[in-house]
């Protein structure tokens, strides 16, 4: 029905915000981070637990780069809903990933051979 921007989807501010430079920057940054993680893992360049931390860090940076450069999330009027949705997602992320991690670490403590180099696993 009516969208407030007429029937032309190209008039939406989200579309208007797009520009090649930020997409290319986002693509390059994300690719570099992924390449770094791949090299670290395939070459076994770090001890296992440090490796886990390093690729988690790469993933976190890649998320930030993608959110900023590709999804254009900020506090401007037309992006605020996306940003609110993202912020609402953070507690869910902490709950689901965090509790799962805690649950499985406790389970492994009782059922699995320990992962070498991981502190707290004894």
């Amino acid at each position: 029905m009516s969208h407030g921007h007429g029937s032309n989807p190209l008039a939406h501010p989200e579309v208007q915000m797009a520009n090649n430079r930020s997409y290319v920057t986002g693509f390059i940054v994300a690719s570099l981070l992924m390449a770094a993680a791949t090299v670290l893992v395939s070459g076994h360049l770090l001890p296992p637990f440090a490796l886990l931390l390093a690729i988690t860090g790469c993933a976190g940076l890649a998320i930030i780069a993608q959110v900023y450069f590709l999804l254009h999330m900020d506090l401007s009027e037309h992006s605020i809903w996306n940003t609110v949705a993202l912020i609402m997602f953070i507690p869910l992320f902490v709950i689901t990933i965090g509790l799962t991690w805690w649950m499985f670490s406790q389970l492994y403590l009782r059922t699995m051979p320990m992962i070498p180099g991981m502190p707290g696993m004894h």
Binding site: I95, L99, W102, Q106, L107, R110
Partner: peptide, 21 residues
């Protein structure tokens, strides 16, 4: 509703702390 899913498999064996939460 997001904090309770483990009660479907309390018997998994993850010990008392997780079960308590």
């Amino acid at each position: 509703s997001w904090l309770v899913w483990l009660h479907h498999f309390f018997t998994m064996g993850m010990g008392p702390y997780v079960s308590t939460e």
